[in-house]
Design a protein around this nucleic acid. Structure first.
Lengths: 226, 226, 226, 226
DNA sequence: TATGAATGAGCCTTCATTCAT
DNA sequence: CATGAATGAAGGCTCATTCAT
């Protein structure tokens, strides 16, 4: 071993440290933003959770807003490729695909911190148009397209009746957005009340919405006689 | 004209002024709250829009939070009595009542600034628990109860199939919350995109969601044999 | 009866009312000042207790400070003439006179709202020098003179030992000032604690202080032998 | 000089600065509190006198009230341990101890700015109950206990006659409170007058009060028969 | 590069004082 | 004379951002 190895190691470690900083800061920022919202987030708390000082944060992100943008960019990336593949590989009925899609979404997004991003954009998008626009391009458009393909599959196979998919997709999206908003706004404050079951049994809620939705989409066998 | 007429007029004007103040302030507050959110609203801006000084606002509302509560009561909570009456007086089918309810909601809340309040609560409720709790009591509980009555009416008459109304109500609520969130967060920033039709034709969106929902709720004549 | 009698009566009542206003306002102000101190007193509360509007108060007293001065002037006036007479008429021992003086003071000043004035001047005198100077002339000088006469009486009769009365008077004054300050500052907040007996048994406190004081003042019979 | 010396010096200076800040702020706060009272003190003025910005003050003390408490602890409450030791170490007569105690108190509290704190509490304690309660716990209770021990020492040794020490302590306390109140309320405004000697010769005042007090406390040899 | 002490603009709320009626 | 609505200057406290070390 060369005597300078130690030095090199230190440099390496330091560089790795330096490279890891933005990620650590964004992870910390994500959790605080989800908990407190944009206005309610203090950069000092983000720095604390990342284990660095307030000043260091400003070394990597020139302002709180820039940190926020970076967090959104980092966390909404494309899982859509994977989901599109899952959709292509699905061989069951479209009703089952719809149910499968909704529960998968719950497990991978709705139930995780990632849903906090959606809530955040919905909440603060009006104040930061750049973020709203970015989110539309990267998340909303691909997401809508994916759901539209699902509905088309059902209509093409005769399983679903003919409806305008541009509107129908929101029968899937609306309950998901709704439960996200609920989870991140009312649920933490209202443990009781008639709506507390939403927080307690989200899977039941998803199942119930899927049930009504599929009843509404499914082509009915023509009732004879009548 | 009698000389005292002027005095009477002035007194009248002044009294009218005093009586009008709370309304003017609440109107101004509504618009600022909707634009800036609760935390982002400065009471001074509310006062300015109402044409009075900061101190005057506190003459009528003891705090920013109380001002907000008054705005909610004025614009949403205070209307459930009227809506319950409308429901009682309705004589058509429950499907028509559902459609009627959703369109009425759109005209009276969704399309107006009042919807901005709902968006605000969803956005900032987690940071201001008192707001969330207040809104739950004054708006969510009565609103949910009203919708549940509608669904029960359909099930009791045999028009709707038997489902758990505690979950089913969200098939009405979710699209309404969704379009509100959209309108107040993404829509102002994204005039283009595949979802721009949401903003352009909200009534069509409502109609489409009602259609799918009612298909999903309606009891189907049992297909014999099959 | 002349028809104008009624008018005259009304005018009379109104004038009496008008004449009574300053007194009513000062009485109200006294009670609020004693309770809240000068800075803590809101003119609106004074007006409310006097049963008039805030504006009316400023009709009679140009400012809060002027109101305060007026209250001090009104309430500290000369009871000294009466007390001097009492002193002249007293025929018992000077020890008894001292005890009598202290208990009289407690009943007429210490136990009444008047003691609040003293507390007020002590508390806020530094901020309003005019009031401090006025109080010195009208209360402190005559009061000190009265007490000095009492001590001189005891020394002249051989009942008290020879001491400097300019300092000795404070052995009477200090306990009185002390219990006033206690009553109006700590007592209301500290119902418990080792000093709560001060508030509970002020007369015992006075008696105890008089006892020690008189032991300290009394000339001792020379102990023979020793 | 080595070039790094400068760096070391700067760091040192900075650390010394940080360590010194609380002390500087408390010193500034003490002077402003004494001059203006609690309500009359603006934190900005405290900061200015300490040579820092308003925000810096809140870096060290979370609120105006906490700043006040720190000032009390620094200047009064924290010294009882030392005073109790002084008492234990005293070997002379209890009369001498009483005199010693009173003069020590004058030198360390009465004559210093610390006495202004006592005046402040007496003046504003009723309006700020938390201040009164805090002062009672931190200063009054330990102070009374200390004085009671002194009196007990005298009674146990037969030097003082048997009296109720719960009242007798106020024969020491009252003159001290009195001269404090005088010094901070009337004295600054009334340089002339019969009481001006109080301000001019406080030590004489103390000595005179101690003299009368000790005469009052001392056990007299029983005069036989008559 | 990293730190954290320091800053200062900004916000909610209070209240003595004014003045149109 | 009397009213009370309106004002606006403070004051305590927060927090994003800067910068000397």
């Amino acid at each position: 071993m060369h005597p300078t190895d130690t030095l090199i190691d230190k440099q390496h470690r330091r560089e790795r440290r330096k490279d890891a900083r933005p990620g650590e800061l964004m992870a910390a920022a994500l959790s605080v933003f989800v908990e407190k919202g944009f206005a309610g987030t203090r950069v000092e708390e983000v720095a604390q959770r990342a284990g660095v000082s307030k000043g260091t944060l400003f070394l990597y992100f020139p302002s709180k807003l820039d940190l926020f943008k970076a967090v959104v960019r980092e966390n909404i990336a494309g899982r859509f490729a994977e989901w599109n593949s899952m959709f292509d590989a699905f061989s069951g009925s479209t009703s089952d695909l719809v149910r499968y899609t909704m529960h998968q979404w719950w497990e991978r997004i709705g139930a995780t911190q990632a849903s906090g991003i959606t809530k955040l954009v919905m909440s603060e998008g009006a104040v930061f148009p750049e973020i709203a626009e970015f989110y539309r391009q990267e998340v909303i458009e691909p997401g809508n397209a994916l759901i539209k393909r699902v509905l088309r599959r059902g209509m093409d196979s005769g399983e679903f009746r003919q409806i305008n998919p541009d509107y129908a997709i929101y029968s899937l999206i609306a309950p998901m957005i709704f439960i996200i908003m609920w989870k991140h706004s009312m649920a933490p404050c209202c443990p009781s009340g008639s709506a507390s079951m939403l927080s307690a049994n989200p899977q039941d809620f998803i199942a119930s919405q899927a049930d009504i939705l599929l009843h509404g989409l499914t082509a009915r066998p023509t009732v004879p006689a009548a």
